[in-house]
Each structure stands twice: as C-alpha cells, then as structure tokens.
C-alpha cells in the first residue's frame, strides 16, 4: 500500500511538468517596487540615512508605547529589543535584537515591513535607518552619532554574529 501511494504521487508530479506559460514578463522597475527583502549583503538597501539622534524621536513616537521607553519590552508583552548580551549560555538566556540577532540588515528589513504593528509599512526609509541606529546605539553596538545608510548598515557587526550554525546540509 505504501509503495503504491508513493509511486502514484511521483507519477502525478512528473505528469504535471508541462507549463501553459501564462506568466507575464515584468521589468526591473516593477520588481524593485515590491522587492523589499534585505539580505546580510545589503545590496538591496534603499537610499537614505539616519542616526540615533533622530531615531530617538521616531522610537518615542512609534515604538515606545509597546516596547517601552527603554526598549525592554514595555509591560512585558512586546519583545525586548536591547540588553541580554552575554546571557545566551547562562541559566537565564535573554534573546533580544542586540543579544541574539546575527545581522543588522534583518533589523532594517523587519522594521520596514512589519512595524509599527498597527501601521506596518508607514515608516519612511529615513525613519527606518534612524530608528535602527537608535536601537543599535541603545544596545551599545554603535555610537550615538554614527550614521546608518546603505553602506554602513551592512558593516555593522552584531554581538552574536557568529553564534549560529545551520543544520540544513546544503548551504
């Protein structure tokens, strides 16, 4: 029974490899309008820049209500964003953006696409650079006046950059 079921499935996949070819070609401009994902190489980062100084205002306006004025998670519901460096191998690991996330590009990507939760995709690129800089400053990763832009963001070394290993064999 098992073998029959497997062979039927394989057959159905093979039989389906004929495409009606209905995909519509799109140009690089249309691709750019939706390609918001940023990998660690940061090649897709947008123009603009920001520092922790301006980011403090963005944070106070858009983030502090949930994540707390000190970015430690507010009343305990929202994720803590800073702190926890050096705790991962202890009896009380604290996973935050600063202590755990391997890449600063992920902070930019996620903030731009998903935050603030009640109005995602409303921050300008300048605001995302600025508030990213503010959190990295609060976490002690960069100086308050350090400008984040498409070049400098990808150069940020997160504290836990080397703390991961992939268990997927085909990297």
């Amino acid at each position: 029974m098992l073998m029959i079921a497997i062979s039927l499935y394989v057959t159905s996949v093979q039989a389906a490899e004929v495409s009606p070819g209905l995909g519509q070609s799109i140009d690089s401009e249309e691709v750019s309008s939706v390609d918001i994902s940023i990998d660690p190489r940061g090649e897709n980062l947008p123009a603009g820049s920001g520092t922790a100084v301006s980011g403090a205002t963005v944070y106070a306006d858009k983030c502090a209500a949930c994540h707390g004025t000190d970015a430690n998670g507010g009343d305990g519901l929202a994720d803590s964003l800073v702190g926890g460096i050096g705790t991962l191998a202890t009896e009380k690991p604290v996973k935050t953006v600063i202590s755990y996330w391997p890449y600063a590009t992920t902070l930019f990507d996620y903030t731009r696409r998903a935050m603030p939760l009640d109005a995602p995709m409303t921050l300008t690129d300048e605001e995302v650079y600025a508030v990213s800089a503010y959190l990295l400053f609060l976490g002690g990763v960069i100086e308050e006046t350090h400008e984040l832009n498409a070049q400098s963001l990808r150069e940020v070394q997160m504290p836990n950059r080397d703390g991961f290993q992939s268990v997927w064999p085909d990297m």
């Binding site: 202890t90 391997p102 992920t106 990507d109």
Partner: peptide, 26 residues
C-alpha cells in the same frame, strides 16, 4: 543564499545550552 529573515533567525532557531543556536531546522 538565505536572506536571514527575522523569523528564521530570531524566532524559529534553536538555542543550545552552549549559547549557540541552530538555524534552518526545517
């Protein structure tokens, strides 16, 4: 290469007692 999105790095990774974490436990 992987994009290392927020959910595959900060959430669905597996923290080990030695403080390192497994990625892509798919």
């Amino acid at each position: 290469a992987p994009t290392y999105t927020k959910d595959e790095t900060s959430k669905y990774s597996d923290l080990l007692p030695d403080g390192t974490a497994n990625l892509f436990s798919l």
